[in-house]
Design a protein around this nucleic acid. Structure first.
Lengths: 143, 143
DNA sequence: TCTTGCGCTCAAGTCGGCTTGAGCGTGCAG
DNA sequence: CTGCACGCTCAAGCCGACTTGAGCGCAAGA
């Protein structure tokens, strides 16, 4: 058991995060410190791994910190039904977002390369899609 | 020129949005009403199309409302250098996000299907990736 | 007439994810 | 022994994207 211990500022430097974020994660229980020496937070390998995992899951609000906490929690969390539910839900959310983002990307790329002077109003490809959406909205309205 | 006019609540119903959001968009200039009759906002086809476009671009903070406003603005906005810059930047952001999300999705799916009792600590695939990240952090720390 | 419904404005509140600031303790180099 | 870096707590602030609430106006139907 190598007993390397890292201070909060070392962890922060290593991972390129502000110290305040780590304290915040500790407070929330997302990344509890391994312990304290005196009153000072100490981190070990396990915490560093956990932080790496948190960073990979928690993509700016994609998988909220609360859910991330549940997912990276100690114990066989991925077995417990609640964690499995969070897992499945997160995957769904991500899939949807990826699809939306792709679509947005397509539109933006089209705007970038469309030969018409004012694509937003002139481009027929764009118009077709927007008009379709408008029709759907109007249909929804009449229902 | 068909001169259909829609009230704010009709637009809201049609697009499944709260009225407050539309007023908010109007205030921000993201989606100005076509005009007002008396003091009452009126929307026409053009505004509905614009709203459809806004919805497609503005994915929950992905392309902030300010940028969205710039992108869907009147005039050959996509030609003006500033808009082109926003366009290119947005595309980049989206690409990065999609990559990150994919990665998160892979991890989550792995957690869901990994046969080990406690994937977060036992699964070697996951461990390998996390350990690598930890090594990089420690390397960054020593620099 | 009066109530009901829709609309308006402006100010304040909410939520997530942090950041910032005040005020204090602690350890060790000069 | 003093100063400085680093650490701590707790409360408040900030940003984006809205939502909510108070208080008001106007028009149409019972």
């Amino acid at each position: 058991m190598t007993d390397e211990r890292y201070s909060i500022s070392e962890v922060a430097r290593g991972f390129g995060l502000p110290v305040s974020t780590l304290r915040y994660y500790d407070d929330l229980g997302v990344l509890p410190a391994a312990g304290r020496r005196g009153n000072v937070r100490q981190y070990g390998r396990a915490e560093l791994r956990r932080l790496a995992l948190v960073q990979r899951l928690h993509h700016r609000g994609m998988v909220g910190l609360a859910d991330t906490a549940a997912l990276v929690a100690d114990g066989p969390a991925a077995d417990a039904p609640p964690a499995r539910a969070v897992l499945a839900a997160s995957i769904e959310t991500i899939k949807n977002r990826v699809a939306d983002l792709r679509h947005a990307q397509e539109l933006l790329e089209h705007l970038l390369t469309c030969p018409t002077a004012d694509p937003v109003r002139e481009c027929t490809y764009l118009r077709a899609e927007l008009d379709e959406a408008v029709e759907q909205a109007l249909a929804a309205l009449r229902r």
